[in-house]
Simulated scan of single mutants.
Amino acid sequence: MTKTQFFIYFIIFLVIDNSFGQTLKITGYDDQTRRKYIANYTDNYLNGQYYEYVGKKKVLEGYFSKGFKSGTWLYYHDNGKLAIEVNYDENELNGIAKEFDSKGRIRAKISYKDNQRHGTCFIYSPKKDELYLTINYNKGELEGEVIENDERSKTIINYSKNKRNGAGGFIDANGDFNKITEYQDGKVVDDYIVYNLSLKPKEKYLINPRGEFYKKIIYEGEQIVEEVLLGNIDTSFMYSKYMWEEEKVKFLLFYVENGESNILAPIYYSE
């Protein structure tokens, strides 16, 4: 729906505002989304409270200030429970954005500044009401530790300017750090250890001076049972196979793309 089409279905109610001129209370319906819109329109701008409904169910509410999304915006699940709470400052995400599941349990807390992820963010397990990921951002880029929690260990990967840097590994139940490998500018630069479910070494990939894996060592218990020459494999093979990738957080309902925030459904603006 274009900006012009947005107003085709409106029934307009005129209210006189002595301070700013005429304010239009607008009700409209979009055949494609099957949503009813209620908005206020003042001096050629969307201005004031804004609502969307599917049938009698409210699916979102927010506030416009002179055409810009401003303050707290709320998005709802089909059952009426809060799905997302975000804060805007002149159309840009700022502050803590929260996502909840349909039962009202917290699923994510994402920190924004000037429409970019900034600061410490938290992702919670979809099956248990427990912290799953802690992620640090600086102006939209991964910076610092990314920590993944599971029942057996705590995996830690360090980032600098959106690339993995430094030692990566996990902390076991005894509080000991177990190194998996070393990264530099996003690339593996050290031997790479793969652990089994008991957090014991299962395989070890040895790296040569050219940054390629040339040998795989296979363990059974604590014993080496086989050594296999690999023929110099690029280390990017291990980069994506065994460790945490940011794609895991794509289940979030809110995201930023091309500098514009997109949440559940687009918001249409007037000229």
Rank of each mutant, 00 (worst) to 15 (best):
D17R: 06
N18Q: 13
S19Y: 08
F20L: 14
F20I: 11
F20C: 08
F20G: 01
G21R: 00
Q22P: 02
Q22N: 10
Q22D: 10
Q22G: 07
T23W: 02
T23G: 02
T23I: 11
T23K: 15
L24M: 08
L24N: 11
L24K: 13
K25A: 00
K25T: 03
K25P: 00
I26V: 14
I26M: 11
T27L: 10
T27M: 06
T27Y: 02
T27Q: 03
T27P: 00
T27R: 00
G28E: 07
G28S: 12
G28N: 02
Y29N: 03
Y29E: 07
Y29G: 01
D30G: 06
D30H: 14
D30K: 12
D30W: 13
D30V: 09
D31F: 15
Q32M: 10
Q32L: 14
Q32Y: 13
T33Y: 10
T33K: 01
R34A: 11
R34Y: 12
R34T: 14
R34I: 13
R34Q: 15
R35V: 06
R35Q: 13
R35T: 11
R35Y: 12
R35E: 15
R35K: 05
R35C: 12
K36I: 15
K36N: 04
Y37A: 01
Y37C: 01
I38D: 00
A39Q: 04
A39P: 01
A39S: 12
N40M: 09
Y41L: 10
Y41G: 02
Y41T: 04
Y41A: 03
T42A: 06
T42N: 10
T42Q: 13
T42M: 11
D43E: 09
D43L: 11
D43H: 08
N44Y: 14
N44E: 15
N44P: 00
N44K: 04
Y45H: 14
Y45T: 06
Y45W: 14
L46F: 14
L46W: 02
L46V: 09
N47K: 06
N47H: 15
N47E: 08
N47G: 01
G48E: 05
G48W: 07
G48P: 05
G48F: 07
Q49E: 14
Y50E: 04
Y50L: 06
Y50M: 08
Y51G: 02
Y51E: 04
Y51S: 09
E52N: 01
E52V: 06
E52Y: 00
Y53T: 03
Y53H: 02
V54W: 05
V54D: 13
V54M: 13
G55Y: 12
G55D: 12
K56L: 13
K56G: 01
K56H: 09
K56M: 10
K57Q: 10
K57I: 01
K57R: 11
K58H: 00
V59N: 03
V59C: 14
V59M: 10
L60K: 03
L60N: 04
L60W: 01
L60I: 09
